[in-house]
C-alpha cells in the first residue's frame, strides 16, 4: 500500500531556467554599469559643450571677470572666486560650531533623551530643501542682519572685506545661509565618527588621570579626525555645488569686489540665473563654468574618499 518515495530525486535544471539565471545576472551587471555611464556621460557632455568657449578663451577664462554677452567677452573669475570664498568661509564658521555641537551630543552633559532628541532634530534639518532656506533667508535673515551689517561697515569699513555700503542681498548672507545648510551635515558626521571611537580609549585616558577635555582633545578627537575630515570635505563639496539658497540671497552681480557686503556670484548661481535665457557662445561659456564647478567638486569628493580609505580607524 505504502509507496516508497525516493529520498533524493535527481532533477536536471531546464535550459530555460539556466538562461533566466544568466539573463538576470547580466541585467544586474548592465544596470550597475549605468552609474559609470552616467558619470562619464556628464563629464564628456559638459566638456564637449564647453569646448568652443575653452578653445577661444583657454585658461584666461578663469582669471578675467568680464561677462558681456553683447561684446561676447566671457570670464568667470568673479563666480569662481565667489564659489571658493563662500564655501571656505562658511566651512570655517561651520566646523567649530558643528564639531562643538557633536561633542555636546556625544558627551554626557545632559541626559541621553535630550541628546537623542537634539541629534535627530539636527538630522531632520538636513532634509529641508535648500529653496526653502533661500526663501527664509530673503524674508527673515536679511532684515534681521541689516542693522548688524551697517554696524560692521561703519566700524570695520577699513578692512577690504567690509568696505562697501550694505544694500540688501550680499555674499555674507550667502555664507550665513550656507552655515545653516552645512551645520546638520558636519554635526551628523562628526557625531557618528565620535561615537565610533572605542570606549576603551576613553576609559584608559580617564584611568591615567586625564581630565574630560584633555581626553577629548588628546584621545577622542585625534581618533575621530579622519571621519570628521571626510565629513568636512563632503560638506565643502555640498557648499560649492549648492545652488538655490545661494542664488536667492547672494545678489547675483558679476562686478568683482573684495567686499563680502556687496552682491556676488557663484558658479552655480550664475548657471541658475543665465542658463535659461542664454544663447550662442554664452551657452558654451556657461558650460565651461559648469565644467570648472564639476572638476572642483569631483576633486573634493575624490580626496574625501581617499582620506576615508587611508586614515579610517584602525582600532
Amino acid at each position: 500500500m505504502e509507496e516508497k518515495l525516493p529520498l533524493f530525486k535527481n532533477r536536471k535544471r531546464f535550459g530555460i531556467e539556466k538562461n533566466i539565471d544568466i539573463i538576470f545576472k547580466n541585467t544586474a551587471l548592465v544596470l550597475s554599469s549605468f552609474v559609470a555611464i552616467i558619470l562619464l556621460g556628464i563629464i564628456l557632455v559638459v566638456f564637449f559643450q564647453s569646448f568652443e568657449s575653452f578653445s577661444r578663451y583657454g585658461l584666461k577664462f578663469l582669471v578675467t571677470s568680464e561677462w558681456n554677452p553683447v561684446k561676447d567677452e566671457y570670464g568667470a573669475f568673479t563666480a569662481i572666486y565667489g564659489t571658493l570664498v563662500t564655501s571656505f568661509l562658511s566651512l570655517l564658521i561651520t566646523i567649530p560650531l558643528g564639531v562643538g555641537t557633536a561633542i555636546f551630543i556625544t558627551e554626557d552633559f545632559v541626559p541621553k533623551v535630550f541628546r537623542e532628541i537634539i541629534g535627530s532634530f539636527v538630522e531632520l534639518l538636513a532634509a529641508i530643501p535648500s529653496v526653502v532656506l533661500g526663501l527664509w533667508a530673503i524674508f527673515v535673515m536679511e532684515p534681521f542682519f541689516r542693522a548688524f551689517f551697517v554696524f560692521l561697515h561703519n566700524f570695520f569699513g577699513w578692512i577690504p572685506l567690509f568696505s562697501t555700503e550694505p544694500t540688501g542681498r550680499n555674499s555674507l548672507l550667502a555664507i550665513l545661509i550656507l552655515v545653516v545648510m552645512l551645520l546638520p551635515i558636519v554635526t551628523a558626521i562628526a557625531r557618528d565618527s565620535l561615537n565610533q571611537v572605542p570606549k576603551k580609549l576613553r576609559n584608559a585616558a580617564y584611568g591615567i588621570g586625564a581630565s574630560r577635555w584633555k581626553t577629548i582633545f588628546s584621545v577622542i578627537l585625534p581618533a575621530a579626525l579622519s571621519g570628521i575630515m571626510a565629513g568636512v570635505l563632503l560638506a565643502l563639496g555640498r557648499a560649492m555645488g549648492e545652488t538655490m539658497a545661494v542664488t536667492m540671497i547672494i545678489g547675483n552681480s558679476n562686478a568683482f569686489s573684495w567686499s563680502l557686503l556687496s552682491p556676488g556670484y557663484t558658479i552655480s548661481s550664475m548657471l541658475a540665473n543665465q542658463f535659461g535665457e542664454a544663447d550662442g557662445s554664452q551657452v558654451s561659456s556657461l558650460f565651461y563654468a559648469a565644467f570648472v564647478l564639476m572638476i572642483l567638486s569631483l576633486l573634493v569628493n575624490i580626496f574625501a574618499q581617499w582620506l576615508v580609505k587611508k586614515f579610517s580607524l584602525k582600532y
Binding site: I42, V46, L234, F275, M294, L298, N301
Partner: peptide
C-alpha cells in the same frame, strides 16, 4: 562612481 555621482552638484545634473 556611486560616491562620486552622489557628490555631483545637483545643478550639473540639470545642465547635463
Amino acid at each position: 562612481g556611486v560616491n562620486v555621482l552622489a557628490g555631483v552638484p545637483s545643478i550639473i545634473a540639470g545642465v547635463f
